[in-house]
């Protein structure tokens, strides 16, 4: 995969997770206690031996940049190649770019200079564990211009699926041509639009892969995708096969349970201090659960603090939310409420 440049496309994130994507792209939404969605794509690229990765970033990217750092966690802090960030920006004669094509156009020089002849373009928000190397073999063996990757079980509606689970190999020459010719066409809004418009004129082949793909497009999806991880065998497999999913390392201490803690059927990340009751929940790094507090079927993101005797059920707390003592937050539907980052509930 030396000849492949990974391109993670964070434009066209149409699906929004309400308050969770208020200040961050979908790709950097926290998941599974210590991950963020983009970790899956970055780790898959690393495990497939892709050494050069460019990320197309559309505004709101501070949280993402913080998470990525120099790409070290995914072995992308290389002297030659490694991680390239391609943010959207405005120039003296243009406003800030609106589409991925326009953004690619602004960064055209980067792609022209890249040594790789093949690109692997991926939507960076898919939750999946996949080795791209088999697909790449198919792509090169068939000398295809474009190879689109589809999950096996849902191969009926190709176009619809493809626009959702965007993953494809494309020859760089064709990629450059597409950008130059279509960046400012009015009726074309994205790179995948171009591909579907010109599909018939080039050698485009499908590749069906057996791995499961989870696409999070609503709070309900997000909640379910997290809760599914409470099956430890499933989570273990998702995170370790075929390759290991890596995330940013923190220096958090092991979880501290006190004599009053009562925990069952939950995932708890490091740095937490648990004095209260936790059941059927996912607790991210650095959360404090005070004595007498009770958390059930909830997702608590990093550094939240749950006050004494507070009761939470079926809720999602974004990072750094403080729940004052004795507060009660319960939703009974399958649509959990989301408390936005840094809120203080009192």
């Amino acid at each position: 995969m030396k000849n492949v440049l990974g391109v993670i496309n964070l434009f066209n994130e149409n699906e929004q997770l309400e308050k969770l994507t208020l200040n961050r792209p979908l790709a950097s939404v926290p998941f599974g206690g210590r991950y963020r969605l983009i970790d899956f794509t970055l780790s898959n690229l690393m495990n497939s031996n892709v050494k050069n990765v460019a990320i197309l970033m559309n505004q709101k990217y501070r949280s993402l940049m913080d998470h990525l750092g120099n790409g070290k966690e995914w072995d992308l802090n290389r002297k030659n190649g490694g991680l390239f960030l391609l943010p959207s920006f405005s120039t003296w004669d243009s406003d800030i770019v609106q589409t991925d094509l326009q953004n690619l156009f602004q960064h055209l020089e980067f792609f022209q200079k890249a040594k790789q002849d093949q690109l692997l373009v991926i939507n960076g928000t898919l939750i999946t564990n996949i080795d791209y190397r088999v697909a790449f073999q198919v792509h090169t063996k068939n000398d295809a211009d474009i190879t689109i990757l589809y999950p096996e079980e849902k191969n009926s509606s190709l176009n619809q699926q493809a626009s959702k689970n965007e993953m494809f190999f494309i020859k760089k020459s064709l990629f450059l041509q597409f950008i130059k010719e279509n960046a400012f066409e009015k009726e074309i809004h994205s790179l995948s639009d171009v591909i579907y418009k010109f599909m018939d004129q080039y050698k485009v082949i499908p590749y069906f892969y057996p791995n499961e793909v989870i696409h999070v497009s609503s709070i309900k999806d997000y909640y379910q995708a997290n809760m599914q991880l409470l099956d430890p065998d499933y989570f273990q497999k998702l995170i370790s096969k075929p390759g290991k999913i890596c995330s940013k390392e923190k220096d958090d201490a092991p979880v501290r349970y006190t004599s009053t803690s009562e925990v069952m059927n939950s995932l708890i990340a490091n740095g937490c201090i648990i004095e209260g009751k936790v059941e059927g929940s996912i607790i991210f790094r650095g959360v404090k659960v005070h004595q007498g507090a009770s958390i059930k079927n909830s997702i608590i993101l990093q550094k939240c603090e749950i006050g004494e005797n507070a009761v939470l059920e079926n809720v999602i707390l974004d990072k750094e939310v403080v729940i004052s003592p004795n507060q009660i937050l319960i939703t009974k539907t399958d649509q959990p409420i989301v408390i936005e980052k840094g809120a203080i509930i009192q």
Partner: peptide
């Protein structure tokens, strides 16, 4: 040094008192 482990899983049958448990 940390090695990118999963968060710890505490099962239904588990009981934990006054302890420290890692990833």
């Amino acid at each position: 040094v940390s090695h990118n482990h999963l968060p710890q899983f505490i099962a239904k049958t588990a009981k934990i008192k006054n302890s420290m448990i890692n990833e």
